[in-house]
Amino acid sequence: MPTLASSSLASLSLLQIETQFRDRIWRGDALGSSPDQIVSSGFDELDKALPGGGWSTHSLTELLLPAEGLGEIRLLSQPLKHITQDGRNILLVDPPHLPYMHAWENLDIDSRRILVAKVSKSAERLWVIEQGIKSAAFGIIICWLPAASPQALRKLQIIARTAASLIFLFRPASAQSEPSAAPLRILLAPAKRHTLSVRLLKRRGASIDLPLYIPLPQIEPFFNPITPAPALANVVDRSSLPDVIT
């Protein structure tokens, strides 16, 4: 019968073990901490739920999304904004649509700092992500991965451990049943208007079952919300026009 691998380990008290292996062992009921650099998400509620208190560098963050257009960019807008303000770059790998830079500029993201990589083949896409992670050039790498094998994700996670950038993988919501090496997996879903439901499927530390509701920065409507009977005719505010015309 095998004895304990190290008898010296056995003589340590639980507290000693905890302090000695602080970064590698955490209690199941406590929220894990992260030894890596943390970037605040900009939402207090979300920061409280994320290990370490924000998005963590040196690891993959998987965001599962049923469809585009739920507010996923607004969810990430704070780190995106801060990274470009620090003069660092953003890499978008295979976004589903063209990013509309006017809107990104409205979120105070410097569009000159954004690079878009368009790749058609899945193997090439993984290669681009790898190169992006290995390169020191990017503060944030956001990738859209419709399909990825667990092996490929594991490889990315190993490479990500050496990188100082935030890495977000957007994957379809159907991928939640697939295994993944990403230490943080989050399922996004729409809640009320301008609110995103965020369910942490996997994180370091205790799991939480209930989703968080994150209020997103509101999209300012052009002008007043639609009245029940929308007047689609070309409405001109004539009060500001000189009297001659009226």
């Binding site: 976004p95 006017h102 990104w104 409205n106 410097d110 300012e220 052009f222």
Partner: peptide
């Protein structure tokens, strides 16, 4: 030079994604 999105007093509402 720094891009000036569109000259207006308040930012216009634009979506983050644009279809091609």
């Amino acid at each position: 030079r720094k891009a000036i999105p569109l000259e207006s007093t308040h930012p216009l509402t634009r979506p983050a994604w644009l279809r091609e």
